[in-house]
Amino acid sequence: MSMIGEYFRMTEAELERAIGDPDWALSHVEETADADEESELSPAEARHFSTHQTWHLLDFLLRRSEFPVNVVHGEEPLGEADDWGYGPPRYLPPDRVRLGARALSRLTYDQLLDGIDPQELVAAEIYPLGWDDRASLEWGRDWFADLQKYLTAAAEAGHAVIIWLD
Rank of each mutant, 00 (worst) to 15 (best):
I126R: 08
L129A: 14
L121K: 02
Y127P: 13
P128G: 10
P118I: 04
P94V: 00
D95C: 08
G100K: 04
P93H: 00
S105I: 07
L92D: 04
P93Q: 02
L92V: 01
L121M: 06
S105Q: 13
L99H: 00
A101L: 07
P93Y: 00
L104P: 07
D117T: 02
P128S: 11
P93R: 06
R106N: 14
D95G: 07
A123C: 11
Q119F: 11
R102K: 10
A103W: 00
R96Q: 10
V97C: 08
S105H: 06
V122F: 11
A124F: 06
D95R: 06
Q119R: 13
L121Q: 03
S105M: 12
D95Q: 08
Y127C: 13
Q111N: 10
L112R: 03
G115E: 05
L104S: 06
D95N: 07
R98K: 10
E125D: 15
G100M: 04
D114I: 01
L121E: 01
I116M: 08
D110R: 03
S105D: 13
L99E: 11
Q119M: 15
L107A: 09
E120C: 07
R98T: 03
L99D: 05
L99Q: 07
L104G: 09
E120T: 01
L107E: 04
L121W: 01
D117L: 11
D114Y: 08
A103G: 08
T108L: 15
R102I: 05
A101M: 06
L113H: 08
R98D: 07
L129R: 09
L112E: 05
V122M: 14
T108C: 15
A103R: 09
E125T: 06
D110S: 13
D95V: 02
Y109L: 07
L99W: 00
R96Y: 00
L112G: 03
P128M: 09
A124M: 09
D117E: 12
R102G: 13
P118W: 03
A103C: 11
P128H: 07
R96F: 06
R106P: 10
R102A: 15
E125M: 15
I126G: 14
P128R: 05
L104M: 08
Y127V: 11
R98P: 06
D117C: 12
P118Y: 04
L107T: 01
P93D: 08
P118F: 05
I126F: 12
R102S: 14
A123I: 09
L92K: 01
